[in-house]
Design a protein around this nucleic acid. Structure first.
Lengths: 133, 133
DNA sequence: CACGTAGATGACGTTCACGTAATGCAAACG
DNA sequence: CGTTTGCATTACGTGAACGTCATCTACGTG
């Protein structure tokens, strides 16, 4: 079953990306599939990273930014000295993301208001129509 | 004072964009500055739209997607028949955005957990160091 | 009136994130 | 054993979103 390793095709079907995309991400050092002969085999770690990559893209991060963010997610590999710095960066990122969410909330509220307004207009138009009958 | 009209330079300084960007947005029909002779003058409406454009970009929307979203914000100009459809689209958009916020919240929580973990490791390393002294 | 300044209009260049062949190799199949 | 299938590499192509450069125009100022 899920032997923890997936071929490129399986990856593509699972995550709805093209082979080109996966190879491209490897070239950019976002993924590190192992090799069986020539063939790529994607590990659990690669899949976790890919999910984060796709998520990052949905929020408008560039691949380079995503690469840096990904490094924050395997903090365990770091040395003590780098660790402190890494955490510092992570905190900044966290701040960014929370600000982003605030903004998104604002956008949602704006749109909701527009919707209410639109519905109100429709309602009043219906009344006019009714009155005209 | 704010005569409701701004030159391209004022716009650039206010919103930290280049003239090229503003002209580009006009070419793409995202902005509609009025003309005084040759010169562009940006209205209150243009500024509102620009804010939404920049916000949209921060969330990874393409300019084309943003253009469509912008149309949702001047619902008032629409006809009744189109109105219903517009509101329908707006509702879908709203759903997207709320899902997006959910995802962002998840990402924030993930990162927070990583942070706590990192801090724990650092703390335990300090203890080790202390014990070794 | 010469001149600097602000803005306009092409038009070509650039970066990012892949798409799209063309070609090769190696195992699997009929 | 030839051929299809799956994946690999190399390399050129592409659309989006501007950057950059050259040239032109209109206006205020000394």
């Amino acid at each position: 079953m899920t032997e923890d390793l997936m071929t490129i095709r399986e990856m593509c079907e699972t995550y709805e990306v093209t082979p080109r995309t996966l190879r491209f991400y490897e070239a950019k050092e976002l993924l590190f599939p192992i090799r069986e002969g020539q063939k790529r085999l994607f590990t659990k770690r690669d899949r976790a990273r890919l999910k984060l990559i796709l998520r990052g893209k949905r929020f408008g991060f560039s691949l380079e930014e995503i690469r840096q963010l990904l490094d924050l997610y395997h903090v365990g590999d770091q040395q003590m000295t780098q660790m402190t710095r890494t955490i510092e960066i992570a905190r900044e990122r966290l701040g960014d993301m929370e600000a982003r969410r605030e903004e998104l909330t604002q956008a949602i509220d704006d749109l909701k208001e527009q919707l209410r307004w639109g519905e109100k207009v429709i309602a009043s138009m219906k009344n006019e129509k009714k009155a005209a009958e």
